[in-house]
Structures are given as C-alpha cells and as structure tokens.
Computed example of a mutant assay.
Amino acid sequence: MVEMSQNAIVRLGRWLGLGPNPLRRRWDRIEAAGRVTALIGLVVSVVAGIIVATGAYQAHERAVQSEARSSQPATARLLTDPAMMNPPPAASSGRAAGSGFAQARWTAPDGSVRQGTIPAAAVWRAGQDVTIRVDANGTPVGDNRANRFTPLSAVMMAISFPIGASALLWLALLGLRALVERRTLREWEDEWRTVEPRWRKRII
C-alpha cells in the first residue's frame, strides 16, 4: 500500500513536470506550469465551494431563526390541492405557475379565522392540516413548504464548485496541450530544416 502511494506521488510529480529533466523544452515547461495552475485552481475551488456553501447555510439558518422569533405556528387546513391553483402575481415571483400554492383557512393569534393563499408542497392535498407560521396580525410569513436549505443542499452546493471548475480546467488543459503540440512540432520542423542539410552533406 505504501509503495502504491509512493508510485502515485511519483506519477503525479512527473505529470506536473516536477523534478529535473534536461530534455524538457520551453513549451514543456509552459504545459507543466499550466498543470500546476490547474491543480491549484481545483484546490481553490474546493475551498471556495465549502466557504460559499457554509455561508449560505448559516445565512439561511439566521433567517429561519429571525422568522421564528417574529412569528408563531398556526394550523392551516388546505381548501384546494396545490396543483389546482395559479399563484397571485405578488406571490409568484420566481415560482412556476400552477403549483406551489394553495387556498387554506387558519386561526390568527387573536382568535379570528383567516383564509388566503399559502405556499404549499406538491404532495399536500385539500383537507390536510399543515403547520404554517404567521405574524402577530395572522398573516403567513416565510416559505412554509418543505424545501428548506438543508445541510444536504449545502453539501451539493459545495460539490458543484469543484465539479464545474474541473470541467473548465480540463478544457483549458486540453487547449493548452493542443497549443503546446503545435508549437513543439513547429520548432522541431524549424530545427530539422537547419540540421538536415548538414546531415545530408555528411551522408553524401
């Protein structure tokens, strides 16, 4: 196992162009620098993904806690299925029409019965009792559907950063490799045009 790990490290070092190599040409060094840069970029993307996902999750949790402090739970009975409704313009920003909202009836903190449109999960059905949060006036607040920003959502966000970065860096390395091959071939051709006449004279 240790030997396999050492071999993997050696192969990685060779791929990155580390270590002395008298046969390495200028464009080989440029390609090696590109590989090192890509590896650093991948590590940075992993760290950036973790930082962004952690910050987003913490911001969401702070918003949820703030909402919890300024509201209280209430039981609402759905009067319609969520898929049977089109959300009103004021509530449908960024949401698909025909889903995500339902008519419901609930009791406000002052004891009065209220009726209106609330966010609803697609699996909810008319006649079902669900828990929502309302302010002191009995108005629903926040998004009460089961689509909270969970730790799993944060993990997926953190993973998406290095995945996207890997795709971009791989394309960049492919482009650099093609450029290096073209330049190296051109240099070999130029050098051969210089050397070939001398060799021909010696052979003749």
Rank of each mutant, 00 (worst) to 15 (best):
Q58T: 15
A74I: 04
A74E: 00
L173I: 09
L185D: 13
S5V: 05
L174R: 15
V43A: 15
A90L: 00
V134E: 12
P89Y: 08
V36Y: 08
P22Q: 10
P151Q: 01
Q72I: 09
Q58K: 01
V52P: 04
P73V: 01
K201G: 02
E196A: 13
V155P: 00
G116F: 06
E61R: 05
D129F: 09
R69W: 04
A178D: 11
S70D: 11
A120W: 05
R186C: 00
G34K: 04
G164F: 14
G41K: 11
M85L: 15
V113K: 03
Y57Q: 06
F149S: 06
N86V: 08
V10H: 13
L23H: 03
V43P: 06
Q58M: 12
R69F: 06
V130E: 03
A158H: 09
I132A: 12
V36A: 15
T37D: 11
V123K: 08
W192Q: 10
A126H: 13
R25L: 11
L171T: 01
G34W: 03
K201Q: 12
M156K: 15
V155N: 11
L78C: 02
L169P: 05
W170M: 13
P197W: 02
Q72N: 05
Q115G: 11
T80A: 10
A154H: 10
A83V: 00
I159A: 14
A154E: 11
T184H: 03
V123L: 04
M85D: 13
E189D: 13
A38F: 04
E187K: 07
E3I: 10
G127P: 07
A108G: 03
P82F: 05
L173T: 11
G100Q: 09
P140K: 02
A97I: 10
R125G: 01
F161V: 04
A120R: 05
V180S: 00
G175F: 14
A68M: 10
V52Y: 05
E61C: 08
K201M: 05
A76V: 14
V141E: 07
V10L: 13
W170N: 10
A154D: 04
A32R: 07
S160V: 06
I50W: 09
R14S: 07
A90G: 06
G98P: 03
P20S: 03
L79Y: 06
R125C: 01
M85W: 11
A56I: 04
V43H: 14
P89L: 05
S92Q: 03
V123Q: 03
P87W: 12
G111K: 04
G116W: 05
L42I: 01
S93I: 12
W199I: 05
L16R: 10
R95D: 07
S153W: 11
G17P: 10
P140T: 08
W199K: 07
N86G: 04
S45T: 07
R182C: 03
E189F: 09
A33Y: 01
D28I: 03
V10F: 14
L39M: 15
R202P: 10
G41D: 05
F149E: 07
N144I: 14
N7A: 00
E67T: 14
V134A: 10
V10R: 01
L42G: 08
P151R: 06
G116A: 00
V47Q: 03
S99Y: 02
W15R: 13
